[in-house]
Design a protein around this nucleic acid. Sequence first.
DNA 1: GGGAAAAATTAGCAAAAGATAATTAGCGGG
DNA 2: CCCGCTAATTATCTTTTGCTAATTTTTCCC
Lengths: 195, 195
Amino acid sequence: MSPADEIAHYVHLFKGLLPEDVTQLYTLAETKILRAGEIYIQKGFISQKLALISQGLIRAYHLQDNGEEITISLRWEQQFLASFDSIIHQKPSRFTYQAMEDTTLMEVDYATVQPIIDNNPRLSAMRHLLLMQILSQSIERIESFVLLSPEERYLRLIQEKPGIFNRVPNKHISTFLGITPVSLSRIRKRIARPR
Amino acid sequence: MSPADEIAHYVHLFKGLLPEDVTQLYTLAETKILRAGEIYIQKGFISQKLALISQGLIRAYHLQDNGEEITISLRWEQQFLASFDSIIHQKPSRFTYQAMEDTTLMEVDYATVQPIIDNNPRLSAMRHLLLMQILSQSIERIESFVLLSPEERYLRLIQEKPGIFNRVPNKHISTFLGITPVSLSRIRKRIARPR
DNA sequence: GGGAAAAATTAGCAAAAGATAATTAGCGGG
DNA sequence: CCCGCTAATTATCTTTTGCTAATTTTTCCC
């Protein structure tokens, strides 16, 4: 895809932006390609990068003392990706971000683009809108933990994001849902043959 | 407290704002006093109000089919309060917001103040900062569900917000932590006399 | 201060989840 | 195609949680 086509693509994706708004950021963006399994952000490092996932899927996980990995987040196409620890608190990331598939990112340095966004009302408005969406998703996830059982969380995930199961091993899905892999396996069995 | 004193108070609280910024919003704000137990936002209604809690504590809860109440959020002094359903999605609130104590709010209509904030760079920047803080808190709460056991979540809450236990009945704390009141009682017993 | 209502604890039992380990299934590289 | 590694399932056992109900404690309202 040519740069002009890409810009048109983003103008369409982020309704309300003008081509020049997109261009402002696009000229600062770099395409980054990760191969399946590759680490994007290493735990303990600061990354001020803000990335938009063009293709692929990134998992963030926490490494327990016993060596187990707990999946904190799963992000895929058209979603933004950043180390919240670094972007919000300017601290080293507590989590490792790893590509689960070959993944293509459009990446900008947030420290660089922040003043540009601050000075462009349309970009500011878009940032605000996207932030609200991310906040909304976060709150929904909190609600799922408070209101639903592990089994119900699993059923909801099937319903809302069925494709995820072909892209992420169940053991990572399970910790993402707040349970162990063994427990997820039992839940799947219960559902397949109730009672 | 006189209006001038109040404005000075907010200028101090929200560093980066000028007195005129605060005044812009302050003139549109109304003080609202709720008595302990009083409902602030009723489930099923749209409330575009954005409130800052001056004093007191507000609980948002979900009403289950069986009549049980599940506490979704607890908000107290210096925190903002709004129906996310209404503000973000312009939908009726799925939750009921109730004062746990006599509570004083500074309240504005978000539809009214939104354009004012949009057109004032300092207010926009402050809104952005506060939104990031709220997002950060939300993500922390998600992490607590994924990474911690119910007992660990309880211990963390004791550590980080000990005062809450004198202000909110344990049965509401328990559902806030994603467990039942009975289970919280057992956790408290385990902790009090280990093994 | 007394009494009613709500909250908290306790008890008993069933269901679910965690931990660990063994087994089976699936996948990828040579 | 086969080997080896990882993932997934299954098994066993322990711990925790949920559910329901009874009991005790606390709150608060008159």
